[in-house]
Every structure is written in structure tokens, then in C-alpha cells.
């Protein structure tokens, strides 16, 4: 039975750790009415030299882009849709 107990405990810990870490990136709690216009937001990024592959509005209330920044670095960026600040930036 010792084997079973070890297995049970390790699976439980893994499952708990999994649930605990499962959170989406949250960018703002402001209502949609306070957000910047999505098209203008993208145009502003393009003017700054970004190339946008894909633009998304995430479940965590972010404007998210996949594409390339002005230095041609491949990036995935989560923006606060209210003030336009970068909440999370991942380079690939």
C-alpha cells in the first residue's frame, strides 16, 4: 500500500500546484467603455514600427498582439487597454 500512498500524494500535489498556477494574465478591471479604441490602438502600434500578425482581446481584459516590434524582435505582448502600458511581454 505504501506505493499507492506515495503515488496518490504526488498526484494530488501536482494537481494542486496546477490549479494554483492556473491564472490568466489580467490587464485591467476597467469597463469596456474606458478602453482605448481597438483600431486606433493598433494603428498607434503600427506607427511606432510594430508589425502585427494577430490582434486579440483576451479573457483577462488585455489587448494582445502577436508580431514583431520596431527592432524586428518576434514578440507576444499583453497591453493594458486603458493606458496602453505593457503588462506582459514574451519574446520568441
Amino acid at each position: 500500500m505504501k506505493l499507492h500512498r506515495t503515488l496518490f500524494v504526488s498526484i494530488s500535489i501536482a494537481a494542486l500546484a496546477g490549479c494554483a498556477s492556473e491564472e490568466t494574465t489580467q490587464c485591467t478591471s476597467e469597463p469596456r467603455s474606458a478602453w482605448q479604441d481597438a483600431d486606433a490602438f493598433q494603428q498607434n502600434l503600427i506607427d511606432q514600427g510594430y508589425r502585427i500578425n494577430e490582434f486579440k482581446v483576451t479573457d483577462g481584459s488585455c489587448y494582445e498582439i502577436y508580431g514583431f516590434d520596431a527592432d524586428d524582435t518576434k514578440v507576444e505582448i499583453y497591453f493594458n487597454p486603458v493606458d496602453g502600458s505593457i503588462v506582459k511581454r514574451e519574446e520568441d
Partner: peptide, 11 residues
């Protein structure tokens, strides 16, 4: 998704 630039972010 990761290696083909044109497909980066592809829905």
C-alpha cells in the same frame, strides 16, 4: 506557430 513567422499568433 513558433517557427513560421507568418503563422505566429494564427488563430
Amino acid at each position: 506557430h513558433e517557427e513560421i513567422d507568418a503563422l505566429y499568433g494564427n488563430d
